[in-house]
Amino acid sequence: MITVKNLHKSFGDLEVLKGIDATVEESEVVCVIGPSGSGKSTFLRCLNLLEDITAGEVIIDGAQLTDPTVNINEVRSQVGMVFQHFNLFPHRTVLENITLGPIKVKHLSEKEAKDVALPLLDKVGLSDKADDYPDSLSGGQKQRVAIARSLAMNPKVMLFDEPTSALDPELVGDVLEVMKDLAEEGMTMVVVTHEMGFAKEVGDRVLFMDEGVIMEEGDPLQIFDNPQNPRTQSFLSKIL
């Protein structure tokens, strides 16, 4: 589903990604962990070209992202993204947040979009909030709306950029629960996270990144219980 070959990314003189190779299979849940500044968010943001790629290739469902003939908006409409700070649209109601993409990108009618949105709101447990504005929601509720908003585009892949890092601890569970349900339904997911419990339980594979490269990757149980790379060992010993 996703193939990354020798991906490099620099901000000016600072090289953040120094050659990443990775693949994500269909229905696979890949968790990306690593210390802050390791480039994991940048890596994720390269997957839908929110960051320009300096060198290398990213291929999503057959589309080569750096190919100038590829319609990036088309690709993005099939790649959902959930942000650390939710980025809900404050001037639109919860329902309008979710229906915007389907109406403007997929050209659904307002009613069709609503028929897509309402079951999704129900799925994330927020049917009663459809007409509220984001400002009146808690962080956990906002993030669940953001997930529903991404799902409304019926994406083939979902990218999560530290989806629970900005939440109060007691609100993290609800969001992780929604993500777990998604994983069980077979959604392909790439999750940058500090939730090691989630990575261990839900992840099919874990990538450990440091200093702009993937230092180690493998089965979550192996990575967490028997890390091979000294960097991984030292990182895990600090946080577990």
């Binding site: 929110l50 993005r76 099939q78 942000f83 980025n87 915007l100 993409g101 403007k104 991404s150 585009m153």
Partner: peptide, 9 residues
């Protein structure tokens, strides 16, 4: 970013 990432121009 939220707008662009859902495919809006």
């Amino acid at each position: 970013e939220a707008g662009r990432s859902m495919g809006l121009t």
